[in-house]
Nucleic acid binder design. Structure first.
Lengths: 137, 137
DNA sequence: TTGTGTGCAAATTGTTTGCATCACG
DNA sequence: CGTGATGCAAACAATTTGCACACAA
């Protein structure tokens, strides 16, 4: 009879279910320690549970993005990657040799000094391209 | 028989033909003064010559990129844009209000200081997101 | 039991390509 | 005139969505 016995708001945020596939996909990102493409994430998930579909990966990723667990990382000329959120502010390095995306801690600062007057900055993306140590000539 | 009567190298660089459509598309980028999406470029070209196909736009853009006339500009979360090349080093500002991509002259410098040891940087992309002056709250 | 998450396939969106034809050089 | 450029449609690749079913809660 007491509707509040479960202390649920009348129309609270949609509850998120804990599923095997969802946990696998979340783990893949947490373990990766670097941004993964959807294909990479799918391949890694398939190693654990061979019947996960790519649509499930995309839906999980989008759910994680809404939850703030995962952040999309767009690498110019390469495509969208995704990484576990929560780390401190950082940027990225894309290696043209091995195709891997590295995390670069820190920030050059002075970014907002570039803003034209009247413009308001909400976010900035910096992506370096080149060769990582292993792929350097 | 003198094969060199037309002074053509046996296998020189592929000649690029000057066509009406190509000129229109090139003009669109030169006049825009800002990065355009392929759709924007197509729409602007259609205003001048209503039968230009989107494939022609893409082929022209790719030719221009090879020639160095146009540079691709990837805006994270928004999609690939293209701009006339030749300007001095600059970066971009994407306005979430009007969807326009602005050119930001200059560079914060200190970028290479972010590089991990052994990494070699060939290029860097900086894209700011926010509200332009007209769209500011 | 209820409704969210999953799998699969079809639908969308952005970009490229095959082919017949056009027209620049 | 020969070959690159164009238009159109089909092919592709990446991502999203419709639908029936499975399974957390």
């Amino acid at each position: 009879m007491d509707a509040s016995s479960k202390s649920r708001a009348p129309s609270g945020p949609v509850p998120i279910r804990r599923t095997v596939q969802g946990e696998i996909i979340r783990t893949v990102f947490e373990d990766a320690q670097r941004p993964l493409s959807s294909r990479e994430a799918h391949e890694l998930a398939l190693k654990i549970q061979p019947r996960i579909g790519i649509a499930t990966v995309y839906r999980a990723i989008n759910r994680f993005i809404e939850e703030g667990l995962v952040t999309p990382v767009d690498i110019p000329g390469v495509g969208t990657h995704y990484e576990a959120a929560g780390g401190s502010h950082h940027h990225y390095f894309y290696c043209g040799g091995c195709g891997r995306v590295y995390v670069i801690p820190g920030c050059p600062g002075q970014i907002s000094a570039m803003l034209p007057p009247g413009f308001r900055m909400e976010r900035h993306d910096i992506v370096l391209h080149g060769r990582c140590r292993d792929c350097a000539v």
